[in-house]
């Protein structure tokens, strides 16, 4: 490849992107740790749980989130870009019908929201949604 001006630009932007990717997972590991603690390292299935979150949230102070997992005993929500990844745990009792719940949460920045459901047979299901946040919701 000849070192033209155009090629140089492509190269430099690619390396910037690579370094940006490298610095991201600082918080994500916290979430992985929290999930591992919850599941005890068990494998996470996918498909039996739905997580509904907006693609873009204008205000990170109140982001509507809905989870539903038929046959779940408990659903835990995590936000991997928040200072503390845990968001909430829903434990379903015998009179709970659909095993679904919705609430409003705070998101500090653009990040993934992760829902982990514990099923009746002891297995775990996971769903993930990326939410872009225009104004963060952790104050300060």
């Amino acid at each position: 490849m000849k070192l033209t001006r155009r090629n140089l630009l492509i190269l430099s932007s690619a390396s910037v992107a690579a370094t940006a990717m490298g610095s991201l997972p600082a918080f994500a590991t916290l979430t992985d740790d929290a999930i591992a603690e919850l599941t005890g390292g068990a494998e996470l299935g996918e498909g039996a749980i739905t997580l509904t979150a907006p693609e873009i949230a204008e205000n990170g102070n109140t982001v509507p989130i809905e989870v539903s997992a038929p046959g779940a005993v408990a659903i835990t929500l995590f936000a991997d870009g928040n200072p503390v990844p845990n968001v909430a745990t829903f434990n379903f009792g015998p009179l709970s019908a659909e095993r679904s719940a919705s609430t409003r949460i705070r998101l500090a920045t653009t990040q993934n929201v992760v829902a982990v459901a514990k099923m009746e047979d002891g297995s775990f299901q996971m769903a993930k949604a990326n939410v872009k946040v225009t104004i963060g919701g952790c104050g300060g």
Binding site: T62, V84, N86, F90, S96, A101, T103, R104, R106
Partner: peptide
Amino acid sequence: VIDIALEPAISTNPYFQFE
């Protein structure tokens, strides 16, 4: 029916909807 553990990441004026 439901038992929810809340963390600080739940918004002001906590809202829940369930079945």
